[in-house]
């Protein structure tokens, strides 16, 4: 059986002055229906580009240089723009990072959420009623008032609940959430995580959560892909990733997670150095310049993808099966 979502060796480059920037370099991942996938990495690792590719909404200056994104076996990136547009909001839905700016400031929430259901062909009144029901489901008590409000009249948590509701109303095969809790404060974040967890069963398709926050991954996901410099450096079920991380970058990432640090220290641990320049990626392992275990081979030769179990693999010279 082929997976619901298959990303196969996907490479995406941004055209820029002074050379192209390789944002994704041979990324592969799969997601089954009912599965929640996490994509984690620091800023600039390509996870937002991956999210944009998953909903077939890459920027105009982005080129798919290799690979495919297949949804139910169909390559969505090679479709005509009109066909891609029809996928969005129906088969694919997205929850955006910043609920502050994700909605148009000059239209009411109701107006927008009604527009977002345009593919249903229902009357505006019927769409409004659907929206009302869904808002109640995501925990907005006064759904009618919420629909009449403008985005700036709602709290960040309310807006993100409304964004979740809008995405759920598409009843999508694939739900992509790009940093769904990053712009929220801690209490709101907990509420939204709780909401997404309770709604997991509502969604028949796969959920992909893109975040830099390991806590969110731990709370929500079944499997995790760790990204670094446009590549997936490790994939593992969430428990294995926390308890037996194999790639040095994953280990460093977990060591830096403030939520996971057991003993109080004077300074937060950090990963020294910075990610490589993706306009000119290093010849060997991308993480080698920052890796404590790196040797001459790491710096000169691209690392192999080493399978440590049927569900865990790492892109590293130092990992032995």
């Amino acid at each position: 059986m082929s997976a619901l979502l298959e990303v196969d060796d996907l490479s995406v480059a941004y055209r820029a002055e002074g050379g192209d920037v390789a944002a994704l370099r041979g990324v592969s991942l799969t997601a089954q229906a009912g599965e929640v996938i996490g994509i984690v990495g620091e800023s600039g690792c390509g996870k937002s580009t991956l999210a944009a590719a998953l909903i077939a909404l890459l920027d105009a200056n982005a080129d798919v240089t290799a690979g495919e994104v297949r949804l139910n076996g169909r390559d969505i990136l090679s479709l005509h723009e009109d066909a891609r547009r029809k996928l969005r909001g129906r088969d694919i839905a997205m929850i955006f990072q910043d609920p502050m700016t994700a909605f148009s400031p000059v239209l009411t929430m109701g107006d927008q959420i009604i527009d977002f259901q345009q593919h249903t062909g229902l009357s505006r009144a019927a769409r409004r009623e659907r929206a009302r029901q869904m808002l109640l489901k995501v925990g907005i008590a006064d759904a009618d008032l919420c629909l009449r409000r403008y985005p700036h009249e709602l709290s960040g948590g309310m807006r993100q609940r409304a964004a979740v509701a809008a995405a759920l109303m598409a009843n999508p095969a694939l739900l992509v959430a790009d940093e769904p809790t990053t712009a929220l404060d801690v209490t709101m974040e907990a509420q939204i995580i709780h909401l997404l967890r309770s709604l997991r069963t509502e969604i028949n398709g796969a959920i992909v959560i893109v975040t830099h926050h390991l806590g969110v991954i731990g709370e929500l996901c079944d499997r995790v892909y760790v990204m670094y410099a446009g590549q997936v450096v490790e994939e593992a079920p969430v428990d294995d990733l926390y308890h037996a991380p194999r790639h040095p970058y994953t280990r460093a990432l977990i060591a830096c997670d403030p939520g996971a640090i057991a003993t109080r220290q004077g300074v937060l641990p950090t990963i020294p150095g910075r990610p490589p320049d993706l306009a000119a990626p290093p010849p060997g392992c991308s993480f080698a310049p920052r890796c404590p275990q790196a040797d001459a081979t790491c710096r000169s030769t691209a690392p192999p993808r080493v399978r440590v179990s049927d569900r865990q693999a790492a892109l590293c010279h130092k990992v032995v099966p």
Binding site: I55, L57, R85, K86, L87, R88, G89, R90, A93, M94, F96, A102, F103, S104, Q112, D115, F116, Q118, H119, A166, A170
Partner: peptide
């Protein structure tokens, strides 16, 4: 981007 992501 949101409006586009919902296929408008």
């Amino acid at each position: 981007r949101t409006a586009r992501a919902f296929g408008l």
